[in-house]
């Protein structure tokens, strides 16, 4: 069902929604950019509708809402192991199609891979409802090449235009709320149909790519800071470690923390042995995971084409450029 709701009315609707949900959306954090006098556009909990930024891509993805950067798995007391039990409200996330689609990849790892569901992820994930945002595309995006420009996985859609908010509500539970504030109107989500960057991800990538000299370029360029992985909406790796509290050494916790295959230590075992020491090898590992390995395992592309890895790279390394090179190499091999 579609609705047209005037802005001030929508603010009331939002207020009512907030009573039942924790709402996360793109916001501007003033002066919180890396460089002085710059802002950070990112996901955060919002109190009012006016805080939401509709016209900019967030630097970080919404994954941290369901997969916190640091998450306590257990609390240790002298003689017990306790699970965190805090109960929270249901969660609403305002997100574009690519970001909503990224949750498929997160779900695949946390809920499907291996014999068990990840209970910490599931606890947060099952409380999430999406409100879809329209998108006209941003720099470095290529969602349309991956089909992640479109989604059906949302409870409502909102598009703020001029003095009104145009909405489509799919979730039956929410229709009452929406109809209270607006008049019915024909509304269909607006998606990106074609990005500035168009290319095809190679269907088949031969193992010959492992030994290809194309990766040595990244050994020279990449500094291994890990930004590409922390901003990626689909990167899920983590490391588990224990803490002994400074003020009481008998108490502590076991927590998981985001890990990055680009940062030193990702493969290093006790005793010091590790794999992929060169940044070029790490780039290869990341890129092939995003566009090939994951797909072999789960049947769909992991990368959603949001372009955040490229937005964030301080060395101007472009994933789409790298994919393009792989395509060319594979096409060349095909000929031979």
């Amino acid at each position: 069902m579609g609705y047209k709701i005037y802005r001030e009315k929508f603010a009331d609707l939002f207020h009512e929604l907030r009573a039942s949900y924790e709402i996360y959306a793109p916001v501007t954090k003033k002066d919180k950019g890396m460089y002085s006098d710059t802002d950070l556009i990112t996901y955060d909990k919002v109190e009012s509708f006016t805080e939401i930024v509709f016209d900019k891509k967030t630097f970080f993805s919404p994954k941290e809402i369901v997969f916190p950067i640091r998450q306590t798995l257990f609390y240790f007391t002298e003689d017990s192991v306790l699970e965190p039990t805090k109960l929270e409200k249901d969660i609403v996330i305002f997100a574009r199609a690519c970001d909503i689609n990224s949750f498929r990849s997160l779900d695949a790892i946390f809920l499907q891979n291996g014999p068990y569901e990840d209970p910490y992820y599931k606890k947060l994930r099952q409380r999430v409802k999406f409100i879809l945002l329209p998108c006209d595309g941003f720099e470095n995006c290529y969602c349309a090449c991956l089909g992640t420009n479109i989604t059906d996985n949302y409870s409502a859609y909102v598009d703020v235009r001029d003095d009104a908010v145009y909405c489509k509500v799919k979730d039956a539970y929410w229709k009452g709320l929406w109809s209270k504030y607006g008049e019915e109107s024909e509304v269909e989500p607006r998606y990106v149909s074609k990005n500035e960057n168009t290319f095809e991800i190679p269907q088949k990538i031969n193992n010959s790519i492992f030994e290809h000299q194309m990766w040595s370029e990244y050994t020279n360029r990449c500094t291994g800071c890990g930004r590409c992985t922390v901003v990626c909406p689909t990167c899920t790796c983590f490391t588990v470690h224990d803490i002994r509290y400074d003020d009481n050494s008998k108490y502590g916790e076991r927590r998981r923390v985001w890990a990055s295959c680009q940062i030193d230590g990702f493969t290093e075992m006790a005793g010091g042995h590790g794999y992929r020491h060169k940044q070029g090898e790490r780039t290869r590992f990341r890129v092939l995971h995003k566009i090939s390995d994951f797909k072999k395992r789960f049947g769909f592309q992991m990368c959603v084409g949001c372009g955040r890895c490229e937005d964030a790279c301080q060395e101007y390394i472009s994933l789409k450029n790298c994919i393009h090179k792989i395509s060319e190499i594979m096409a060349e091999e095909e000929k031979v």
């Binding site: 890396m34 460089y35 950070l40 990112t42 950067i69 803490i243 985001w258």
Partner: peptide, 29 residues
């Protein structure tokens, strides 16, 4: 220390390089 960064304000020059180096915006201005 203990998987957490500690800053010694007496030694800190306030140069802000930690903010520039941080990939997750754990350090901000």
């Amino acid at each position: 220390h203990n998987f957490t960064v500690q800053r010694d304000h007496e030694k800190c020059t306030g140069c802000g390089e930690c903010i520039l180096k941080c990939p997750t915006a754990a350090w901000t201005r």
